[in-house]
Simulated scan of single mutants.
Amino acid sequence: MADLRIEVASHAGVCYGVERALKLAAHAAESARGSVTTLGPLIHNPIVVRDLESAGVKGAQTVDEVESGTLIIRAHGVVPQVIDQARAKGLEVLDATCPYVKKVHMAAEKLVREGYQLIVVGESGHPEVEGILGHAGDAAHVVSTPRDLDGVDLARKVGVVVQTTQTPANLAAIVSALALRTMDLRVVNTICSATQERQDSAAELASRADVMIIIGGKNSGNTRRLAEICMDRCPRTHHIEDSSEIQRTWFEGVALVGITAGASTPGAHIDAALACINRLLEP
């Protein structure tokens, strides 16, 4: 393994929205009077969530569980009624919703105001998608694949917004299917540029690597998509949350190890993986 090389994708790890949310939470933990609570996990990374708990930032699933103090709205956003409920209860609300997610909310509201039936391209049940639906009106539909359009009664005017971590290929496939079935189709591509950059750089590296390691929460949609993209190009792809999962046998007969990480993965987690690999390869 003396000639083994390790390369980190040119775009990997925390995006702007996640970094912003983490900074807001850290500042609140240090300066807020009273308890600090996140509504759901702040980001989809169990290790980061545990670290926040150690720093005194608790988690709650509903506003009803929070009696007082500061409530942090997760990076994925929430429906507007949740923020109203929290403020009505006298809680200090710290909105850590990613600014790019807020752009999806505004695009959804605008399309509905203009009379378009809304299609949300994304994962049904995902917190970001649920937040988008809160701004989309009662007639919106969530679509993950073109097949999900089967049985949907489409209007003459259809508008589309996209979960920020979706792939351009999936959006294109769904738009192609919609174009055949509606007279007036308006698409607002709300895929985050950071997502596209991570996906593109992961695909490029995976096409050259013998082994790929994807670092990030198993509950993170964007990290799972990175793993899928890499698996298509590099069958020896491993999705890990923690560097302790890395095994020496993964590197036998390998010339190039590629590493990338989801948008909810701090740089320290990438550094820990690199250190772990180097330790495992020591003679």
Rank of each mutant, 00 (worst) to 15 (best):
A55Q: 12
S124H: 07
T97L: 01
H135M: 05
S144G: 14
E114S: 03
E204I: 02
H269F: 12
G131R: 00
R248Q: 10
L256A: 08
R156W: 06
Y100K: 15
V161K: 10
T223S: 15
S244F: 00
A86K: 03
R248V: 12
P99Q: 12
R33A: 08
A169L: 03
E130F: 06
A28L: 06
P235Q: 08
A25W: 13
L178Y: 12
E114H: 14
T70I: 00
S68Q: 07
E123I: 13
T195I: 03
V101P: 12
L91H: 05
V129Y: 02
I270Y: 05
L256Y: 08
L226T: 01
I6Y: 08
G137N: 05
M1K: 01
N189T: 13
L24R: 04
V162P: 02
S10E: 12
T70M: 02
L274E: 10
R279T: 07
H76M: 02
Y16P: 03
A263G: 01
R5E: 14
V93T: 07
H135A: 07
K157N: 07
P266F: 10
G159N: 02
D232Q: 14
D148Y: 12
Q61N: 10
K110T: 08
V104D: 07
I259H: 09
A173E: 14
A25Y: 13
I240H: 03
R181F: 05
E19I: 11
Q166W: 00
Q61A: 12
A209M: 11
A60D: 07
E241L: 07
M231E: 09
V104A: 14
V187E: 09
V211N: 06
D95M: 14
Q166V: 01
R147V: 05
L280Q: 05
R147C: 02
M106N: 11
D210S: 06
C276H: 14
T265S: 12
S144I: 00
E130A: 13
E252Y: 04
G253Q: 03
M212H: 05
V63R: 10
A179I: 01
A88W: 06
G90Y: 13
A268H: 11
L118I: 07
T97A: 01
T265L: 05
Q196L: 10
H44F: 08
A107Y: 05
D271Q: 15
T223Q: 09
I73E: 00
E109V: 10
P46F: 07
H269L: 15
A172V: 00
P46S: 03
L22I: 04
A86Q: 08
N189A: 10
I47M: 12
I213Y: 05
R186D: 03
H105C: 03
T223A: 06
V211I: 11
S207K: 01
A108E: 08
Q61W: 06
R236Y: 08
V142C: 07
V152L: 14
V254Q: 01
S54D: 11
P41M: 11
Q85W: 03
K102D: 08
R74I: 05
G134Q: 09
N278C: 06
P41F: 09
T190F: 12
S220Y: 01
Y100W: 15
N219Y: 04
V82N: 13
H135C: 11
I72S: 08
V49S: 02
